[in-house]
Design a protein around this nucleic acid. Structure first.
Length: 843
RNA sequence: GCCCGGAUGGCGGAACUGGUAGACGCAAGGGACUUAAAAUCCCUCGGUUCUUGUAACUGUGCGAGUUCGAUUCUCGCUCCGGGCACCA
């Protein structure tokens, strides 16, 4: 392989170039686009807008294949929509806060800012080298004070509205990153970033009340028809709404009550014990000073240890211990023994579960283990007997042994039982979510400072607006400037804005997901002297098409939806949902595995662009697979795409005459009736290709089939103009075909097509051309192939004129020599004729 | 365990609403051009069988079913990928 390349390079210098000069062409047009600011846009009420956005990158140093794919897909859509006359907003920027910058600072002694901005400059050039049609005037970097100061302002507004609060809780702590993680950032018990095991830790932190929006976030999922079902489902499950009964079980001989939540109030007469989480606050008072104290404490200690040690993917065996106390089932007055159990979660519901072993599998296992009664109260068709059951019945049924509720079906019983509890005052209708409030405090340096000052007398005081932004220290990199903020005395030593006494600045920074939660809105007015300019936001939002990896299905996309609603309620924007249409693209893989340094299978886009040019790389990444699927990188396939472009290049140059010979204005003034057979065929293929490409893009962005369509057209033009010596083609038809090829390919390989467009004598750029439309008359075939089947098997094919009627086709099929042979005088039972397609003869 | 996807030639992938399976590309083989190579162009290319044909049979993960006809619809499996997971 290597040898072959060297050989080619040698011969290249010796003889005339064997490929088009992509280097010169791409540089030329990139400069042109930059100089002309070809893709700069502004609000224009006259024109329909289209906001296209790809997820912005983290400036890690260089772009990778995932970026190439993501941005190639986006650019095709942007350019396509532009040709259709839309005012297209297509911005780019940098998700620039984050841990790698801090690590680099420690390792190389550069300030994170310097490291980040250098990476940005380099990667910006790489993106430009791909010929992506961004409005670079709108570029933003989230680490820039002009970005994060507005985030700080929004934070303070949310604080004022009571949507931000501080609390001490058990947080997920990653030792390696030395920071707190949100629940969503913990994957299988490990840090999403470094894979280190997460440990619980008690500390203060700032939280955003996303749970206040849980219902809306859930309900508005129904609006998201343009999102993959999969992502919607993932979000729905993540929010995890359940409805049921919240109910108090008084502790026997005590004034304490145990609060429980259940989605199955219909089973409440089947309660035979109560399970508490080991962390439940009541446990202490229940056991202190009793004979059960010691065993229970031992159990709790052991369970907490196990929890930490246990691999998260394994379900530990159910254990528990009796507390010696009883509570009372308020419905029937039963004495219910209280246990502490290892499978009850403090984080969900109330940390206490009414146990109904007959109708809950976990309770069932627990009951069998500790010999507790099993009392079925919801009877399916086949009657259950407690002693004989070998698993819980979790389905619906009819109530039994449930006092006044006997005979009611589950669904009705649920309502009736809740009503009863509400009337009697020991319980009420209740909704619980799996979703937790979003902890946004990070103990990091390279993030947006949380704009709060802690004062001994005034408490947590917001930084006054006129003092924003709270800047990160060390815009020049002095020694040690990359240390977290709590190690930087001159940063945190301040006076209280309210009372003027000595106070301390908050040293936590915000989770970087904060920045990516609203950047799409900031793009609409990136230099505004406010978080957003309302008119601009009004005009451009929502994002019409958003493109990115499915790995952000929960984290980023949920937070962005949440922020949209926050900004709406603060009066900045007028939409409920940020992204109308979502495309989640697959990964780029090599040899069946994700590209990674450790696997040594990384392909660097930079090398490829140097070797083949950006257009080839773009073309291949669009051609090799439909966008939503994983893309297997194949070096030989890239070669194939390169060959194709060269073929088109030669084809156009070889047929330059038709551009001169035919009048541009008369372009499509082709009279179908007057065309020769060959001209008619090419004309038809041209229009069929327009239809195919347009529909591929419109329905599902399947550029792979769009490209193969154009390839077919190229093949047909080659065959018609080649040395095969076909009759000379009508110059207008030929010109139309070649022009169509350039139009259809332009969004995918823009430099290439633009160059040829100019070479063939056009002054206006392709950016300003209309996307072609197909002529419904021209695409009609005048001859069709009809398949003739006998008992569903293809036995012959007929060529017939398109307007042949069914009777004639049927007769022709029966008269066909091969068919006569096959039918062999057997009685014909039935003949099915499908118009324009086939005849099936059943014998 | 539960919920989503997916499985088609040597490979990436096509196939509208149930109607010609394998478009397009890659790889492979053969040929033309060339002193030679590169580049380019042409031909062949799912499998099996033979009587080498406009041939027969077979073939879309496996097994049933519906239908004149199933890659496509239904049911039951297998494998692969992704998500969630003691959620009361």
């Amino acid at each position: 392989m290597r040898l072959r390349q060297e050989e080619r390079n040698m011969s290249k210098t010796a003889q005339k170039p064997q490929h088009y000069d992509f280097k010169a062409i791409e540089a030329k047009w990139q400069q042109h686009w930059q100089k002309e600011k070809s893709y700069k846009v502004s609000e224009n009420a006259e024109q329909k807008k289209y906001y296209l956005l790809e997820m912005f990158p983290y400036p890690s140093g260089r772009i990778h294949m995932g970026h190439v794919r993501n941005y190639s897909i986006g650019d095709v859509i942007a350019r396509y929509k532009r040709m259709q006359g839309y005012n297209v907003l297509h911005p780019m920027g940098w998700d620039a806060f984050g841990l790698p910058a801090e690590n680099a600072a420690l390792k190389h002694g550069v300030h994170p800012a310097q490291w980040t901005y250098e990476n940005i400059s380099y990667m910006r050039e790489q993106l430009k080298a791909m010929g992506l049609s961004y409005d670079w005037d709108r570029e933003i970097a989230t680490c820039h004070p002009e970005y994060y100061r507005w985030e700080q302002q929004v934070f303070l507004q949310l604080l004022e509205k009571g949507l931000v609060y501080r609390k001490k809780t058990t947080v997920n702590w990653c030792d390696d990153c030395a920071t707190v993680l949100a629940r969503e950032q913990v994957i299988d018990g490990c840090c999403w970033r470094c894979d280190q095991q997460v440990v619980p830790k008690n500390m203060y932190g700032w939280f955003l009340k996303i749970t206040d929006y849980a219902d809306e976030l859930l309900e508005d999922l129904d609006q998201l028809n343009g999102w993959p079902e999969k992502v919607v489902t993932m979000q729905r499950n993540w929010i995890g709404k359940s409805q049921g009964l919240a109910c108090d079980f008084p502790v026997e001989g005590d004034k304490e009550k145990i609060k429980i939540f259940t989605t199955r109030p219909d089973t409440i007469y089947g309660v035979t014990f109560m399970s508490l989480a080991v962390e439940h606050p009541l446990v202490d008072t229940l056991i202190t000073g009793t004979e059960h104290e010691e065993p229970v404490r031992d159990f709790i200690k052991q369970t907490l240890l196990d929890k930490q040690r246990m691999a998260m993917d394994q379900e530990p065996e159910k254990h528990g211990v009796f507390t010696g106390k009883y509570c009372i089932n308020p419905f029937n007055g039963d004495r219910v023994p209280i246990y502490v159990a290892n499978f009850v979660l403090m984080e969900y519901g109330t940390g206490a579960v009414m146990a109904v072993p007959a109708h809950d599998q976990r309770d069932f296992e627990f009951a069998r283990k500790y010999d507790l009664p099993i009392r079925p109260v919801v009877q399916p068709e086949e009657k259950l007997e407690g002693e004989q059951m070998d698993s819980a019945w979790e389905g619906d049924g009819v109530l039994a042994d449930s006092a006044n509720f006997n005979g009611l079906p589950s669904a009705e019983a649920k309502k009736a039982i809740i009503d009863h509890a509400e009337k009697k005052g020991f319980g009420q209708r209740h909704i619980t979510y799996r979703l937790r409030d979003w902890g946004i405090s990070r103990q990091r340096y390279w993030g947006a400072p949380i704009p709060v000052i802690h004062c001994d007398t005034c408490g947590a005081v917001p930084v006054p607006n006129e003092q924003l932004p709270v800047l990160l220290p060390g815009s020049q990199p002095p020694y040690g400037s990359s240390a977290p903020l709590h190690q930087q005395e001159d940063f945190y030593t301040v006076t209280c804005p309210q009372c003027g006494q000595d106070a301390q600045r908050e040293t936590d920074t915000m989770d970087t997901f904060m920045e990516s939660s609203w950047y799409f809105a900031r793009y609409t007015s990136p230099r505004a002297d406010a978080p957003l300019e309302k008119e601009a936001a009004q005009y451009w939002l929502a994002v019409d098409q958003y493109i990115g990896g499915v790995e952000h299905a929960i984290l980023h996309l949920l937070y962005a939806r949440f922020f949209t609603k926050l900004l709406r309620d603060l009066g900045y924007l007028g939409v409920d949902e940020p992204f109308t249409q979502l495309l989640t693209q697959g990964m780029v893989i090599k040899d069946g595995a994700k590209m990674s340094k450790s696997k040594g299978n990384v392909v660097d886009p930079h090398d490829l662009i140097t070797q083949y040019g950006a257009d080839t790389v773009r073309l291949f990444s669009l051609f090799a697979a439909p966008p939503e699927r994983d893309l297997e990188w194949n070096a030989q396939g890239v070669e194939g795409s390169f060959r194709f472009l060269n073929r088109v290049y030669r084809l156009i140059l070889a047929n330059m005459d038709c551009f001169v010979a035919s009048d541009e204005k008369k372009n499509n003034a082709v009279e179908l009736g007057k065309l020769s057979q060959g001209d008619r065929q090419l004309h038809r293929k041209t229009h069929q290709t327009i239809q195919r490409v347009t529909e591929s893009i419109e329905t599902n962005f399947h550029f792979n089939t769009a490209i193969s369509g154009v390839m077919e057209l190229v093949n047909q033009v080659s065959a018609a103009t080649g040395e095969g010596g076909k009759q000379p083609l009508d110059q207008t038809v030929l010109r139309e075909a070649l022009q169509t090829i350039l139009f259809l390919l332009f969004p995918m390989v823009p430099h290439f097509c633009q160059e040829l467009w100019q070479v063939t004598g056009h002054k206006k750029t392709l950016d300003h051309q209309q996307w072609p439309e197909y002529d419904t008359e021209a695409i009609k075939e005048d001859e069709l192939t009809i398949v003739v089947q006998i008992n569903g098997k293809v036995r012959s094919r007929l060529q017939v004129a398109a307007d042949t009627d069914e009777e004639e086709i049927k007769q022709a099929a029966l008269d066909d020599e091969r068919i006569i042979n096959f039918v062999d005088n057997k009685p014909v039972k039935k003949i099915i004729v499908v118009k324009g397609k086939l005849v099936n003869i059943v014998v």
